[in-house]
Design a protein around this nucleic acid. Structure first.
Lengths: 191, 191
DNA sequence: GTCTATACTCAGATAGAC
DNA sequence: GTCTATCTGAGTATAGAC
């Protein structure tokens, strides 16, 4: 796959990221990781303590990447509403789902605080980031002062996460976009 | 578990429903189902063709139940806004997630059109039901006429599905409620 | 209808040679 | 660092006796 460019640990981590996104933690076996990484059994257990250790490394990296991607749009130019809109309309691989959010449906992730932590922290960071932007928008008169920033932020993140569910259920990214348009209509400044 | 009251096929179906909710399709083995149902290997393969067959029966029943529960609230008394609010605030086992929505993160469900169909149909029915109610609310002047019923319906369903994600990530149902409050604030009639 | 036997692969590792 | 051997149990069945 990427054998020529990366070290064995790197290939193992990247393969794990791919497979966790595609099949979740429960659905990803050490053997599948090794084959995808073109690494032997011995290599994997030399570099990592086992599946949970490797998964933790992979999840942390994915979480970091997701944060950076979001910040790239949310920290960009424009008014708060415009930046939230840009975030919601951003190009996404909708049918693959959210590589972080999907992990919450994995029983073994939820049962393990260490594995759950990066998932929790990432979604929490996103909510706080958005909450601050909603408040900033209120100061500029872009959003109604009666709204609660944390609540609206949670609604925004939930709409995105739920959008993936609707899209995957229907086999089409259209449902995601429809939900986003509805949210933007509700958020839209009246002037 | 429920050995005394139900036939073996019933126990198998109910056990499968439980386990699919808890661990998903990939995370649920025939052996686990048999043990939960207190049924032997032979029994399971006598009554069902295999894991996919049993899962399909279980998923259809869960889908039917979810529809009935939703209709119980959405078809109740009150204005459209009030019934949508009742639906959103309805008692839920938030930390367990949605027994239908969670299946969309299961690669083997998504890869199998027969297994995906009941999931798709249920979420689709819900969206259409809500879209009609939004339009009814618009006729009564409860919602702004500029809104699109289908879009708002998708936003509502996505907020619920995503609310489960936030709740499970944080290990607390509070995040679900926060997202719902945000959505209700955005939907609230001004008079 | 249910049970036991059998089969073959995979999950998730550990041990030790190279 | 990587490879091969080995291990115990689970995954997903089929076959045939009772």
């Amino acid at each position: 796959m990427y054998s020529d460019f990366m070290s064995t640990p790197e290939r193992l981590i990247e393969s794990t990221r791919e497979l966790l996104w595609e099949r979740g933690y429960v659905g990803t076996s050490p053997k599948a990781i090794q084959q995808h990484a073109e690494a032997g059994q011995g290599s994997m257990y030399h570099h990592f303590k086992g599946k949970p250790d490797l998964a933790l490394t992979a999840i942390r990296r994915t979480a970091e990447e997701m944060r950076a991607t979001a910040e790239g749009v949310l920290g960009g130019p424009g008014s708060p509403y415009e930046r939230i809109e840009a975030y919601l309309r951003r190009e996404r691989d909708v049918l693959r789902g959210c590589p972080i959010g999907r992990l919450t449906m994995d029983p073994d992730i939820i049962a393990n605080d260490e594995l759950r932590a990066p998932v929790d922290e990432t979604l929490d960071w996103l909510r706080e980031r958005l909450a601050g932007m909603v408040e900033e928008g209120q100061e500029r008169g872009e959003f109604a002062p009666s709204l609660d920033g944390e609540e609206i932020a949670a609604t925004i993140v939930a709409t995105v996460q739920g959008g993936y569910v609707l899209a995957r259920a229907s086999g089409s990214s259209a449902a995601f976009d429809t939900g986003v348009r509805g949210l933007l209509a509700l958020l839209r400044p009246t002037r």
